[in-house]
Every structure is written in C-alpha cells, then in structure tokens.
Design a protein around this nucleic acid. Structure first.
Lengths: 356, 356
DNA sequence: ATGGTCACTGACAACGTTGTCATTACACCC
DNA sequence: GGGTGTAATGACAACGTTGTCAGTGACCAT
C-alpha cells in the first residue's frame, strides 16, 4: 500500500510532460522505462547499451526535448572538465584581439570547447576580477593578455595545474606559456627598411612606455638605427601616444620642427592612423615615408598604400589554443615562450625616398 | 572509539592543505571551525553571520585561496541561473559583430553575466549545433543572428521561458524579441541622397538574396527610386555578391556597359570595399558617386571619403542586452521587434555630381 | 550440471553547493 | 520566573549528473 503510493507519486513526478520544466534524466528514464544510468550511457555515447534500449532512450529524449546538463555532469565527472576556457583581451572589438579570438574559437571548437571572452580596457583591477569570474565558472584553461604590473595572482591556480597561456605580452611574476610577436625584430625590420631607402632622419611615434611590447618595439627600432651608424640622440622619440588624436598632434609637431624627419615609424595601429591623418592634413603623405606596426584593413587603398610590419593574430590565437589543449591533455613540460614572426608588407608609404 | 576514528579521518581529509586539490567549502569550514552553511553565507554575503565568524571564514578562505564554485551553486540554487549568456554571431572577428559583442559585454558585465560568443560562418548546421552547445551549458539567455531558414528549433526552449533575442535579422518560425536596423529605410535614404544630387542612372550592388536584410535593402532602394519617378527596370541590379572580389568584378562590368551608371549603391561592407577597389582601378573613384551600407574604419581617409549609411552596432548590442536582462528579470510582455535607425554619414563619395 | 565469461542494466553514492528547518543561546518583557 | 522573540548556526536533503559496483541472464566450455 505504502509502497504503491510512493511509486505513484514518483511516476507522477517524472511522467512525460512537455511543459515549462526542463526535463532531466529521470524524466527520460521514466518514459523509456530504464534506469537513469542507462540514459546517461546513451547520452554520452558510452558502450554497453543494447541497440533496442538505445533507440528507446533516444526516442524518449527527443520526445521530451531533453538536453544533457553539462554543468551537472562536470560536477561529478572525473577531471571535472567544463569544456570552456576564458579569454581575456584588451577589447573583444579590437580587430587584432578579435582575430585572435576567432582563431582560438576555431581551434577549440573542434574539441567542443566554448570560449568566454571578456575585455580588459587597460584596467588592471578588471584583469583580476575577470580572472576570478572565470575561475568561479571553473574554466578548463585561461588565455590572458596581461595588463597588470604582475600576474603573480594566478600562481595559486597555476600551481593547481590550471592551464594558462599568456598572449601578446609575457607575464611578470609567474612562469607560464606565452605566445608573442617578435616585437623588437619587427620594429628593427621597419627601421632597416626605411634606412635602406636612404632615410637618415627618422622619427619614432610610440605607445605608453608601461606596455612591455611598446618598450620592445622602441628597443628594436633604436638598435636598428645604431647598427646602421645613425646617432640615436638626434632621433625624435615621441611616446605615450595611445590614440589617434595624440598621434596626429605629434605628427604635426614633428613636421613643424626645425629639422623635420623624412620618415616616420609608428609603433601601433591607432598611432599609425593618427600619423596618416596628420600627414594628409599637411599634404605630406606622398612626401614623408611611413611604416606602421600592425596591419589593418584597407591599408592598400590609401594614397599611397601603407607599408606595415604585420603581426599574425590568427597564428597567435591558433598557437595559444594548441598550447592550452596540450596542457589540458596533461603536457607537463616546462613553460615556454613562443615567438610568432612579424612580416614586412610593402605597399608604398615606406618606399618614398628622402628628398634630394 | 569508532566515532573518533571517523572524526580523525574527516579532519584529515578536509584539513588545511595548500596543495593541488582545489579547496571546497568543507575545507574552509574545517579550517575556520564552522559549518559549511556558514561558509556559504559568508561567500554569498548573506546576512545572519556575526562579524567575528565572518572574519574567521574570510581569513580561512583567503588562506586556502578558496574560490566559490558557481557551477555547483547554480545546480542547487533556485532559479538555476548560471550568470552566462550565449551569443551567436556571423563571426566574432567581423567588425560589426564584435562591436555588438562589446556593447553586450558592457551591459551584461555590470550584472556579473559572462558571455559565450561563437561564430556561425553562414552555416545553418552550426547554428543549431551551437545553440545546443549553449543550452547544454545552461545559459540564462540566448542572443542569436539567425542564419538557418527557420528558427523553429528554439521553440521548445522558448516555451520554457529561455530569454531569447534575435539581432540583425528577424527570426522565422518563432515569435521572439528582435533588434534590427531599419534596412529598407536606410537604403532608401542612400538612394534619395544620390537622387537629390542629380543622379538618375544608379546601380545596385547587393548581397545574396537569401539574406533577409539584403532583400530589405533592395526593397528600400527600389522604392526610393520609384518615389522619385525613376524607372526601376532600367536600373542594373547585381546581386549574390558576397565578397570583395565579386563586387570588384561587378563594378568593372557595370562601368564597361553601354550606358554606365553615374552612381553606385553597395549594400554591405565587403561589397563597398570591392566597389571602391573597382572604381579606383578604373580611375573612376572621383567621378562615379558611391554610397555604401555599413560604416567602416578609415572611410574618411579614402579619396574621396566614402559616404555611408551607418548602422549602430553598439546600440543594437546594448538594446539586445537590455531585452535579455528584462526577460531574465521576468518580463513576460509580448515579443517585439526593436528598430535601430541607421544614419547617413556624408564624406564626399556620395556627393559627386553626375557629368553634365 | 557446473563454472566462467560476457553483455547489459540499475541502485547508490558522490560531486560542491544552497534551501529548509531545527536548535541553541541570549536578551527582553510582563 | 516563564514566556517570547531574535540572531546565529549547522545538520540534512536536494540539485542533475556520472563512477562504482553488484546483479541478472545468456551462452559456452568443461
């Protein structure tokens, strides 16, 4: 009697109802007339289920529109994988970042891994907060563009074997994989290119010096000048430029000086845009040579086309994804920094000859 | 005796060890000498904990580097929220899409909601697969750019009250909120602008006609011509263009015809790029007027600057996020389509006068 | 018959958390 | 002094799943 009553309650509770409440394995099991473990086996394509049973379960799950709950599964599952990784970028809408994002998505989606992406906006506090948010969601890996002065705060996670890869910039205070562009070599290539075209009076437009990559690019630029025997003391170095407008102004100031440069190297996307704008306003775009770091859309449609040192965000993203996957798969080798070479793309603006 | 042994085992198991294993509330509770429910209260800032106890728990959790497990919490928590939403875009690296992504992130992050973003690549199969992947992760909401012929497959979820918002295009086969640009009105604005400058021989370069927005834009364009009394039968309509190269070729063909147009309307980003390239190659960029749908970086740096009908992806994203939040908060009002107006931005290419 | 292997299946505990509820201690009031 | 209220606390079950393990037949070889 008692027992029957309980059974009735049970079957009522889990009986097939296509309603508002999301069905669980219990509902599917009840409808298919099997145990929940069998449903689990079917949903996960585990062996050891007869074809007849499998079909009944599949039918029931379709009838109820059942969807396996990965969050519950990862709680119990050994290894606890959530099949998700966190990606921290300067901004998801920045073209360079979003290329990386896309390349990572492609590499990770074949393994069924989803990507949480978030934007840092140069805010070190956000960096820590977003990492915490990712950790709270138990991501299987972390891919970060470091902003804060130190990344030592990830040490506890890292020592718990959470796969971590830094991109664009190397981390400070932790030993971890990193995927970066050859910033110094790229900038050196740009300088050497301008020098080979006869330029001696170069100028440098650079980003904020607290950014590691900006310092690297300046170093490469100056080393290249030194190697060509050009006194770097006479070279105007304008730094701290972080947007188009400040770069535009700096360009105006450079060209208004007593001894204006005949060629400009701009160390970053937005700075290049500002320089282009400044040169055009002064009607100097066909006279002053320009090489920019970072490629951008329509660079070839400018007048003249803009010669750049291109980074390869898609390769950076792919490589970062491969490193994360390797670590997830248990790779315990020592952390390493991977360098993705940059590439000089000749389009005209860098080939303008100096006057005379 | 027995009891003591068990207790010893317990305390060993949960004793403070800063090791590889991620600590749980039990570890924190054991270290702080409280029950796990008290730890839960502290971590969730629930009231009813004395300040002294709170401090002990906070201390213990910091010492162990404890991180609340949101996935476990959302399993038990009433309402089951995971504080995450899924976002399906044509491609995360497409500038229009990534602006939407960014705007949504900004609006959702203030509520602590993280975004899963994924790319569709015009593949209807991927659309369904990615929605399933999001559902398996129990997202609190879904924001989709529909690709497939019908979105009826989300009906079961929708009837389970899963907040769903479509962006860019309206869904087919479901009633749900949508946030779209005024495609027809925008294209009409472009045509009217060219007509007001004296053009009568216009040409239309359009995207694939299976895309709803492309059809809308063509409709607006043609209606605007008809309203001005221009016979639309004589207007060359080139459609099915989906990349720069095909648009470039179409431009060449248009200008090589017996009675070439004096103005071109291109219905989309990449098509505009192809048209620009084609016109430049034919040295016609300062002669043939051009208005494009979609704004893009450096449009003002072209020669002449490119006049466009700009969409406002940041407003679309913000609005979509607001709708999702409202639905998450229980808004049960009837689904609605929200239209974000486009904007004509005059830069030169659309103001070139017809010859004569 | 007996024993052994094998394929299939489900009961049960556990994952880490939170909702419910009971318990304790103490202050307060008549 | 007894009753009442309230703040603080923890035991316990439950969320939906999967790992473990034991059970059931069927089948084959002895």
């Amino acid at each position: 009697m008692m027992k029957d009553e309980v059974l009735t309650t049970m079957s009522n509770r889990y009986q097939a109802e296509v309603g508002k409440n999301r069905p669980t394995m219990r509902h599917v099991a009840a409808l298919a007339g099997v145990g929940i473990k069998t449903v689990s086996r079917v949903m996960n394509n585990e062996p050891g289920v007869s074809e007849a049973t499998r079909l009944r379960v599949v039918g029931a799950s379709q009838q109820l529109n059942y969807q396996l709950d990965m969050t519950a599964g990862s709680l119990r599952r050994s290894g606890r994988q959530t099949l998700s990784v966190g990606l921290l970028l300067p901004s998801v809408s920045n073209p360079f970042s979003s290329e990386i994002h896309r390349a990572m998505e492609d590499a990770l989606s074949v393994r069924g891994i989803a990507v949480f992406a978030a934007s840092l906006d140069d805010d070190p506090e956000r960096e820590k907060a977003l990492v915490a948010a990712f950790l709270g969601r138990r991501v299987d890996g972390l891919v970060l563009t470091p902003i804060a002065r130190s990344q030592a705060y990830v040490i506890p996670e890292h020592s718990r074997d959470l796969p971590t890869v830094f991109i664009d910039r190397e981390p400070v205070g932790v030993e971890a994989d990193a995927v970066v562009t050859d910033n110094a070599a790229g900038a050196a290539k740009a300088a050497a290119h301008l020098i080979s075209r006869g330029h001696r009076k170069l100028a440098y437009l650079g980003d904020r010096t607290d950014i590691q990559t900006a310092r690297e690019r300046r170093r490469g630029f100056l080393e290249s000048l030194a190697a060509a025997g050009i006194a770097t003391s006479a070279i105007p170095i304008r730094e701290g430029l972080h947007d188009e407008e400040s770069a535009r102004q700096a360009t105006h100031e450079l060209l208004a000086s007593d001894d204006p440069p005949t060629a400009i190297f701009s160390s970053q996307n937005l700075v290049t845009f500002g320089a282009m704008r400044g040169l055009k306003e002064l009607n100097a775009n066909k006279r002053i040579a320009l090489v920019g770091f970072d490629d951008f859309a329509l660079a070839d449609m400018m007048d003249p086309g803009i010669t750049v040192v291109a980074q390869h965000p898609e390769r950076i993203g792919k490589l970062a994804a491969e490193r994360i996957l390797a670590r997830i798969d248990g790779d315990q080798s020592a952390p390493q920094t991977y360098v993705v070479p940059s590439e000089l793309i000749v389009r005209g603006s860098g080939e303008l000859a100096p006057p005379g």
